[in-house]
């Protein structure tokens, strides 16, 4: 009795499944094509900053240093000679420049920066300066 019931249940199930159709719509996955001219990859390379704005920002920042007399700050001023800073203050200036322009200046480069002119030159020639 039970076996007969089960076998009939299976036949009903199979018949049902045969007629069952699931409509599967092929959804088109549109792959964004990255050939659009508006999409630029230049953000990584960055652009060079305008030299006059770099000059303004660096001079502003140097003027804010504790020991610096703002009147003496010129684009040509050297940190140790003209502004009376020592090597530790120079490190501070370089760190402040890093923060201002979101850069990371490696030690070898940082040691070469000893005047406002050199700092401006470095930042203006740095593609990732912000």
């Amino acid at each position: 009795m039970q076996a007969a019931l089960r076998s009939s249940a299976i036949t009903v199930r199979n018949a049902f499944l045969q007629h069952l159709r699931l409509t599967v719509a092929a959804t088109s996955h549109r792959v964004p094509i990255l050939l659009d001219s508006r999409v630029s990859f230049s953000s990584d390379h960055g652009t060079y900053l305008d030299k006059s704005s770099v000059t303004d920002r660096i001079l502003e920042l140097v003027k804010k240093m504790e020991k610096v007399d703002p009147a003496k700050v010129t684009p040509q001023a050297s940190f140790q000679g003209d502004l009376g800073l020592d090597s530790l203050d120079t490190v501070e200036v370089v760190m402040a420049i890093e923060e201002e322009f979101a850069l990371e200046i490696p030690d070898a480069e940082a040691d070469k920066i000893s005047s406002c002119a050199e700092a401006i030159e470095y930042v203006a020639a740095h593609p990732r300066a912000k």
Binding site: S87, L88, V91, E92, M95, E99, D107, A110, D111
Partner: peptide, 18 residues
């Protein structure tokens, strides 16, 4: 060396930012 001392100060400043 002076360069080592400067590097140490720089490391402090970098750490301080965090």
């Amino acid at each position: 060396s002076p360069a080592q001392a400067r590097a140490l100060l720089k490391a402090f400043m970098r750490e301080a930012r965090k």
